[in-house]
Simulated scan of single mutants.
Amino acid sequence: MLAEVEAKFDFPANIKYWMLQSIGVKWLNYKTSLKAEHWDSRPVQEIMEAIPAEVSPVQWCQLVNKWSQPQDKERAARNVENAKKQKYPHTMGRVSCIIKEA
């Protein structure tokens, strides 16, 4: 992805780190949206066969295999439970947020 950007645009070398971070966040968000749209209570084999048009079959199989691993399912369930426990969700981006309870 970085090679594609470098081929099309001229930019200072000192922003390469920022670009890599930005690409990584976008890739993570894309995988999250794929899982939200396509991962449900159907059998894994059925999900694997329903390849989204914009995803390569090899990458789709790798994602579905990862999502179906027991440790990945346990981590996802634990994260859902932890998210439900938050009293004060962090909504300020990268700015640190300290809330003192009265």
Rank of each mutant, 00 (worst) to 15 (best):
T91Q: 13
E54L: 12
P70N: 09
S41T: 07
E101I: 08
E54P: 00
S96V: 09
E101F: 06
R94E: 02
M48V: 08
P12C: 06
L63I: 02
Q69I: 00
D10Q: 11
A13S: 15
V95N: 11
R75N: 08
P12T: 11
E74S: 08
Y17K: 15
S96P: 04
E54Y: 03
E101A: 06
Q59I: 03
K8P: 00
K85L: 14
A50K: 12
L63A: 06
W60V: 00
Y17N: 14
Y30A: 09
Y17S: 15
S56V: 04
E37T: 14
M92H: 09
D10A: 04
A13C: 10
I47R: 02
V58I: 13
Q71H: 11
V25A: 10
G93T: 05
W60A: 01
K87Q: 13
R75M: 13
V5D: 00
N29I: 00
R78E: 12
E49I: 00
A83D: 13
A3Y: 03
H90E: 05
S56M: 10
V55Y: 05
Q21T: 11
Q86E: 13
M19P: 00
V64C: 05
N65V: 00
Y88K: 08
E4R: 14
A3P: 01
L63Q: 07
E81N: 10
N65T: 10
M19F: 07
R78M: 08
L63R: 03
S56P: 00
S68A: 09
V58T: 11
M1I: 08
C61E: 15
A76C: 03
P43T: 05
A102I: 04
A102W: 03
K87T: 11
K85V: 06
Q21A: 06
K73L: 14
A77W: 03
E46W: 02
K31Q: 14
E6Q: 15
M19L: 15
Q21G: 13
E74C: 01
W18A: 12
K73C: 07
N29T: 01
Y88D: 10
D40R: 01
K84E: 15
K100I: 11
E6F: 06
R94Q: 05
I99T: 12
N14D: 15
I23C: 07
G24K: 13
W18G: 02
N29W: 01
W60N: 01
L28I: 13
P52F: 02
V64N: 00
L2I: 15
Y30L: 08
R94Y: 03
S96I: 08
L63D: 08
M1Q: 12
R75W: 08
L34P: 03
E101H: 14
K66I: 01
P12M: 08
V55P: 03
K31N: 14
W27S: 06
A53E: 15
Y88P: 01
L63N: 08
A3G: 07
A3N: 10
Y30K: 11
I51K: 09
Q71N: 07
P89M: 10
T91N: 15
A7I: 00
K16N: 08
M19W: 02
Q62L: 09
M92L: 12
A76N: 05
D72W: 03
M1H: 12
N14L: 11
S56H: 12
K66Y: 06
A7G: 12
N65M: 04
